[in-house]
Deep mutational scan, measured.
Amino acid sequence: EPLWIRPDAPSRCTWQLGRPASESPHHHTAPAKSPKILPDILKKIGDTPMVRINKIGKKFGLKCELLAKCEFFNAGGSVKDRISLRMIEDAERDGTLKPGDTIIEPTSGNTGIGLALAAAVRGYRCIIVMPEKMSSEKVDVLRALGAEIVRTPTNARFDSPESHVGVAWRLKNEIPNSHILDQYRNASNPLAHYDTTADEILQQCDGKLDMLVASVGTGGTITGIARKLKEKCPGCRIIGVDPEGSILAEPEELNQTEQTTYEVEGIGYDFIPTVLDRTVVDKWFKSNDEEAFTFARMLIAQEGLLCGGSAGSTVAVAVKAAQELQEGQRCVVILPDSVRNYMTKFLSDRWMLQKGFLKEEDLTEKKPWWWHLRVQELGLSAPLTVLPTITCGHTIEILREKGFDQAPVVDEAGVILGMVTLGNMLSSLLAGKVQPSDQVGKVIYKQFKQIRLTDTLGRLSHILEMDHFALVVHEQIQYHSTGKSSQRQMVFGVVTAIDLLNFVAAQERDQK
């Protein structure tokens, strides 16, 4: 057995438009009618409502009807409940999964919650491996369901041993009777949507819809739904939504950006999952974080739909894509998950301010006199920076000697690579993860907040409520011999709460 199987392995699926269902090699399930009293909570997966979006479509000038398939009504709160249950049931049916076995899954959280929910009911041990950027709410729900959680670096490539995929496979090879159901490759993922989600949409719309818009992560949702719609409703256009920084969209030119990270969760990847059939997507749109969270908040405030950030991405694209539809036509959007997962993220004004998705003037509360002053007023001194090749031991000596707790790590040209902190280095040394002679590049981390000289002290204040420091950066445009230009970030300084307090105190003292 291989040590790991690539999540982007070539698909062996034989589905073709027009091929009889009787030739399918898979076990198919028909939607079942729910009894009045459910035998367990797993029976509350599927049969989610279709809700008309009344205000947002009109606000953006849509002539067509805009409908939302509300997947956050599933038992675990997301569309991923469907595939989690289906993968477990299919693994039980073919004898792969037996009582007492362990389920391991690399996930952005929602599939993990679905699997942990099913594992709690069915009696399996469950280990979820997820990147650090995923919300604390997801972690809390997983723990409450009895799952064990392993976190991995957000910026690790999918084929790196440190990625959530790599760590999951390492655990599988170490733990007896453990299984990775593997949402990236498992046919049960798109089949769950082909058999149930798509049929529900067709039934709820009486077979009449002209466009379907869905955000894409593993691709199982859009693949399964689109294949069924292509068979039953061939005139329906399928629109895929991919965040900026991901590479799922086609044509490839759409993916060209210097951005590699994004805040919206559960969609987009740096590889093409095996289950994603991009041939059934008629057109791709890219979405960005700001519009995703703005539209998610709009869905909550104006439509009462308590959905997550990827739902915002989907609707932001839908109001663009559906401009081509006329009166009497219908566009369906998939709202994948609930706001429950993001209470401390985009639902929080403070978080939105820190990330730059909300401006101070958007909030009406009274601010102190210094709130709208610029960061450049602080008069920061030149920063202490270190090269990635310097040793951890030497870096600790320098920081202690100069009285700093942290320093930016830059390359020879001064471009920011990340940050090192005294606390992080000492804990890594004590844990045996690094040696004093190791290069400081081994303990770089990139989960820090950046701020510009033109940003306000109010925004800085919000950042420092949650973080010990902020890195002050400025952009530099560099022209190359080819005539092309590129933008790079340079370090201007490091600012802490002490710097802000000293500035405010000094100004008030001078005024007296």
Rank of each mutant, 00 (worst) to 15 (best):
L501D: 01
K359Y: 05
A322L: 04
R509C: 15
G441M: 12
G245N: 04
G423D: 06
I334Q: 00
I239W: 04
E250W: 07
E377L: 12
Y342C: 03
G414H: 06
Q329S: 04
D337K: 01
L306W: 00
G493S: 14
L422Y: 04
L363W: 11
W371R: 09
Q511N: 13
G418M: 04
T454W: 14
E508V: 08
Q256N: 15
D499G: 01
F293S: 00
I416M: 14
R400P: 15
K366V: 15
H372P: 06
P273H: 00
A321V: 15
K446Y: 13
L305I: 08
K283L: 09
K345L: 02
Q489D: 11
T391I: 09
D242K: 03
D411F: 09
L464H: 03
F404P: 02
L363C: 13
L358N: 08
S428R: 06
L305H: 00
R459L: 09
I463M: 15
V319I: 14
D270C: 03
E244T: 10
T344N: 04
Q478C: 15
G312L: 01
V491L: 15
T456V: 15
Y445M: 05
L464R: 04
F346Y: 03
P383A: 08
G304R: 00
F404R: 03
I267C: 03
G304V: 01
K345E: 06
A413N: 14
G240F: 02
L422T: 07
E244L: 04
E263D: 13
N341G: 04
A322G: 06
A382E: 14
T294M: 05
T389R: 14
M466F: 15
I300D: 00
S428I: 14
L471R: 03
D282M: 03
E361D: 12
I396H: 13
D242P: 01
V415P: 04
S486W: 10
Y479Q: 10
D289K: 00
A322M: 05
M352V: 02
M490V: 13
D289P: 02
V339Q: 05
Q302Y: 07
I398N: 13
D337P: 01
F293D: 01
F285G: 10
I477H: 11
C392L: 15
T257K: 10
P383H: 05
Q450L: 12
A322T: 05
T364R: 10
K446E: 15
V473M: 15
D289G: 00
P251Q: 01
K402D: 10
G418H: 13
A505L: 03
V504T: 06
A505Y: 07
E253Y: 07
S437L: 15
V443Y: 15
V386N: 02
I396P: 09
A296K: 04
S287N: 07
E324T: 10
D337F: 01
I451N: 14
L358K: 11
P336T: 06
L501Q: 02
L363H: 13
L363N: 07
V440W: 05
L387C: 10
V443R: 10
A301L: 14
L373S: 06
E244W: 09
S486K: 14
R340F: 02
L378Y: 05
E412K: 14
G458W: 11
Q302E: 07
I396S: 14
M419P: 14
A316M: 05
E258T: 12
E397G: 10
G328Y: 07
I444C: 15
E303M: 01
L464T: 07
D349R: 03
L453T: 14
L373K: 06
K512A: 13
L500S: 08
T294C: 07
T389F: 12
A382M: 11
T274L: 05
A311T: 13
T482H: 05
R340T: 04
E253C: 08
V409W: 00
F469A: 15
I498T: 12
T456D: 15
L305Q: 00
V491P: 06
L363I: 12
D289R: 02
H480G: 05
Y342L: 06
G458D: 12
Y479I: 13
Y479F: 14
Q435D: 14
D289W: 03
S427M: 04
E303G: 03
E475R: 10
T395N: 09
R400K: 12
D349M: 04
H468L: 15
A292S: 05
V415N: 04
V319E: 08
V375M: 13
E303D: 06
F469Y: 15
L380I: 14
C307K: 06
A292M: 01
L471G: 11
F469M: 03
L457S: 02
E290N: 12
D349C: 03
Q376F: 08
S287P: 05
K449S: 12
G414M: 02
W371F: 10
C307S: 11
Q435P: 12
I396G: 11
T385E: 08
T482V: 11
